[in-house]
Each structure stands twice: as C-alpha cells, then as structure tokens.
Design a protein around this nucleic acid. Structure first.
Length: 211
DNA sequence: TGCCAGGCCCTCTTTAGGGCCTT
C-alpha cells in the first residue's frame, strides 16, 4: 500500500524497489511474493510502497526460511495482478533503482506483462555502481555494503521494504560520496548509470572529468 | 529422461571459463 499520494513527478525523483520472489527466474515459472519501494526526491523519502502478494501456488521451504514470508502469510494476500496494477500506478514514469537491477527488472517486466502494463522509466543498478565506487569493499552484496558504509539499519534483511530502504540509503550515500570525495556538484541518475558502464580501471579518470 | 537463470565482469580471455549478485 502506498503511504502518500501527494507528490509531483520531477525528473530528480527515483523509485528504489525490491522484490521477494518464489525463485530466481520468471522464465522458470517463478513469481513475485512481495514488492517494497521507496520514492526519493531531493535526497529524502517522500513515499513508500509495500505489499505481499499471492503467487497462486505454495512457496518452497527455502523461500519461507530465506524471506520469513510464510505460505500462511500469503494465503490471504491479494493476487500478483492486483498488487502489480497498484504498483504500476505508484512508479508512474519515474526512473528506477534496484540492487542487482537485472533481477528485479526481469520480475517487474514479467509481472507487468501479465497485466498488460508498461513503464517508461530507466533502471539503474546500485550493485554495478557500488562495484565501481567501492572497489575496496569486501564484496558487493547489499548487506555487506550497508556495513561497509556504516549505514544504519533495523536488522531486517530479505524483506522487500527493508531491502529497498537500505538500497535507497546506499544510493544516497553514493550521491554524497560523489559530491564530497569526487567534487561532482550535482550527480544525477544518468551520471550514476554512466559510472556503472565504466571499466574498473577507468572510472576514476571518468569521475575527474565530471568534477 | 534429465535438466533447470541471466547478465555483468574479470582473466591464466576473445575459438572460454567461472565468480558474483539477486530469490
């Protein structure tokens, strides 16, 4: 459910999202079971979305243990189609951010195909950007980066809203580091997308040209 | 019957292999 519908649609607003799913591949029949999202504008959270959804079949014990989402919790949840229609309205035409975005994009595309909805926004991947900016991090899992950047968290992992909140905080930390450590005055969505496309060796030179 | 993701990225590469990341 969305918590605040009173917002405009400026270009500097992004939606940071995270899916919990029945598995790794929509092509193998996997479905979404939870969507969480945070809307960011000018470095602040202005809206949130969180909803469980019933995939129409029982989820595995592995997924119950991994996410803490049980078959009982999903039994009275609305259908994927109902939730995703509401989520399509939430994201509108904003640009999107996710950690390992190719995963979330596959599920978003698959679930939207089921309800004949589309979105015009672009995706940016916080993992690919973090691999460039934080080359000394022990690894680039979301939880590891949260610890690496000393980002406050509530100790909840692998739930959609909690993970999207942490990804949003990581996104804001990367924007701040680009300003503070790389003297880039106004880093934006397209710049971060470009950083992900730089080679590991060339990214510092690329950043110097932006400052 | 047997198998079962996909994309990015690095390197002991490019006529390939394997690790990382997401559930």
């Amino acid at each position: 459910m969305t918590l605040n519908n009173q917002h405009n649609k400026p270009a500097d607003t992004v939606v940071v999202l995270d899916f919990e799913t029945t598995g790794l591949s929509p092509n193998q029949g996997d479905r979404a079971i939870e969507i969480g999202a945070v809307m960011l504008k000018d470095g602040k959270v202005i809206d949130r979305f969180q909803q469980l959804m019933n995939p129409g079949f029982r989820i595995s014990g592995f997924i119950e243990n991994y996410t803490g989402i049980s078959n009982m919790m999903l039994s009275d949840a609305p259908s994927c189609e109902t939730v995703m229609a509401e989520f399509a309205d939430f994201i509108g035409d904003y640009n999107l951010v996710a950690h390992n975005a190719s995963f979330d994009q596959r599920f978003l595309d698959a679930e939207f195909r089921q309800i004949n909805r589309q979105y015009p926004g672009n995706f940016a991947c916080s993992m690919l950007i973090a691999r460039r900016l934080y080359q000394d991090a022990p690894n680039h899992k979301l939880g590891s980066l949260i610890h690496y950047k000393n980002i406050h968290h509530e100790g909840v992992f692998h739930r959609a809203l909690a993970d999207s909140e942490m990804t949003a905080d990581l996104w804001l930390a990367m924007l701040e580091d680009l300003q503070q450590e790389h003297q880039i005055i106004a880093p934006d969505f397209s710049l971060l997308q470009s950083i992900a496309k730089q080679s590991k060796a060339n990214v510092l030179q690329f950043l110097r040209k932006q400052s």
